[in-house]
Design a protein around this nucleic acid. Sequence first.
DNA 1: GATAAAATCACCCGAAAGTATGAGGGTAAA
DNA 2: TTTACCCTCATACTTTCGGGTGATTTTATC
Lengths: 157, 157
Amino acid sequence: MGNHFIAKNKTNLFYGLLMGGLLFLLNWLELRFVIFDHSFEIYIGAVAVIFTLLGIWLAGKLTRPKVETVVVEKILYNEPGSVFVLNEKELAATGMSKRELEVLQLMAEGLSNQEIGARLYVSLNTIKTHSARIFEKMEVQRRTQAVEKAKRLGLIP
Amino acid sequence: MGNHFIAKNKTNLFYGLLMGGLLFLLNWLELRFVIFDHSFEIYIGAVAVIFTLLGIWLAGKLTRPKVETVVVEKILYNEPGSVFVLNEKELAATGMSKRELEVLQLMAEGLSNQEIGARLYVSLNTIKTHSARIFEKMEVQRRTQAVEKAKRLGLIP
DNA sequence: GATAAAATCACCCGAAAGTATGAGGGTAAA
DNA sequence: TTTACCCTCATACTTTCGGGTGATTTTATC
């Protein structure tokens, strides 16, 4: 019972005792300064300052921090009007295989060969071979060109 | 208004009153065991209480609220009107410079850094610096990702 | 079953891309 | 004037890409 109370109000008790101590300190100080007639105002001022600071400190310790929520709208763009239809004619013209088209799509998403390999559960070297064939069939030199051309031809969204 | 204040600072008031009680208890103890004139201590106690409360109130007024940012994703749809309109809002959001946007456009056309440099009459190293800044500002790692994101955001056709 | 195409993987090598850092000149805002 | 970008270029280094070659296995197809 008692222990529980102490445990639960430990901080409160601590602050209470702390203040008691401060008061005694002040009283003790008073004994030393009481001989001076004009120390009273200074003493009061000191008490005011000290306890104001104590109040500020206490507030920081005891109050929950204020939280201000700011909502930021993140805008995503998308075009729903144009549903992608694969241009089968152009696809056939390139002679692209199913797997190669798959690799090409992932390329267009900005994945590296390494990442594409991981996504398709094959090795990096395999992806290299695929991409080489893709560049051949699309008659380009770089993946960026391949992606650009593939989009233009309607091979990928 | 008053009720609202009380509700919001309930804990503060509680601790204030608690401290007041402690002070009076202290003074009462002194009355029983000491023979001094205690009006002075009571006065000091009152000042202490008042200024502690003032400090707490001040702290509440002065503390800046923590800002918590909540990102809400909002999807907008582009007109499939085929005519490219630069999304100035997103462009400003990226903080992309004119030159950087220029480089990004040529990137999207599948040009190599070397070719972009030749097109813009600057050195390869300059293009590398530009592209590095582009990747930073667009928060991507590769040119293919940059192109993909730029198209999605309406920064380039 | 033989053949062809597709898919998988490996190795080497050079080119290109990307990272990190510094630096100098220009322009515009504070 | 200082500050802050922007544009330019450079060096050095690492990683990725792409070309070339060859090989094995799987999958259609006749």
